[in-house]
């Protein structure tokens, strides 16, 4: 599939926009449709698209395995960390009102970091699943 000229050109053109759109969905999630779950999935879909066109090895150079596996755990830790931060600042677990001087501002900050955590984990899991299936397939072909 990697030798098709049309696919390569269209892919090169579209992939930056897919990744940009993921970030837009992530950071604009407060005001329009979107949020961590969607952003993670769209970002992962962009990378999967890249892997399908340019080959798995090239995608692995962009998003190496250790990075994906770290993302898997880092997102959950970030989410729980926001909860613990609320705990340390004198509130309840996952209580965002204490994260800033102004309660509403604290809510914004809490929601922002929680969404980032969600996006990181979802993106990591989707990419890891894809890598797992795809690398199995490659190994099968070589046998």
């Amino acid at each position: 599939m990697g030798n098709d000229l049309v696919l390569r050109v269209v892919g090169k053109l579209l992939i930056p926009f897919i990744l940009m759109f993921a970030l837009y969905v992530q950071f604009h999630g407060d005001f329009g449709p979107g949020g961590g779950f969607q952003a993670g999935v769209i970002f992962a879909a962009g990378i999967v698209f890249y892997a399908l066109i340019f080959g798995l090895e090239n995608a692995r150079k962009v998003m190496p395995d250790w990075l994906v596996e770290t993302m898997l755990a880092a997102g959950v830790l970030l989410y729980a960390g926001v909860g613990v931060a609320g705990l340390l600042l004198g509130g309840n677990f996952l209580d965002y009102f204490v994260l800033a001087h102004d309660p509403v501002h604290g809510q914004h900050r809490g929601i922002f970091w929680v969404e980032v955590g969600v996006a990181i984990t979802v993106c990591g899991v989707m990419l890891k699943i894809f890598y797992m299936f795809a690398s199995r397939g490659l190994a099968e072909d070589q046998k």
């Binding site: 407060d30 449709p33 949020g35 965002y96 809510q107 809490g110 929680v114 969404e115």
Partner: peptide, 16 residues
Amino acid sequence: VDVPNVVTAVLASFRG
């Protein structure tokens, strides 16, 4: 919580 998208607000804050 002053977030216009209620789905995001409920997702991350009310039902965090």
